[in-house]
Amino acid sequence: MKIQELLALVDGKVVTSSDYNSYDIEYGLASDLMSDVLTFDVENSILITGLANLQTIRTLEMSDIECVIIARNKKVTPEMIELANEKQITIIDSPYTIFRISGILYENGIKPLY
């Protein structure tokens, strides 16, 4: 699934300036626990989280995950945006809950890993 398509599904807004047109999402995980995210080793994945801090972005960088949805419009700080832009990571803000976003993505063919 392309990010453009995903945005419409989750009422999402991209807050970073990285180019996301070529990113094709196949797998998803929802977690607020970064150690959990670090065990997720597949390409083309997306994280859905309620945790909005610098370590969220660092974790994505180490895990090679290029896209994250921050659920329930948590405050994305300028530092997070700056780091995400530097690392070519796309941050999407969504007003929906982690539960709702996960359900929508699952229904639309995004696969779980475990």
Binding site: L33, M34, S35, D36, V37, L38, T39, N53, Q55, T56
Partner: peptide, 16 residues
């Protein structure tokens, strides 16, 4: 824990 760590997975993750 607020930073998203501290669940007792660090060293096992390193080991893995």
């Amino acid at each position: 824990r607020e930073m998203g760590f501290g669940a007792g997975m660090g060293l096992p993750n390193i080991n893995r």
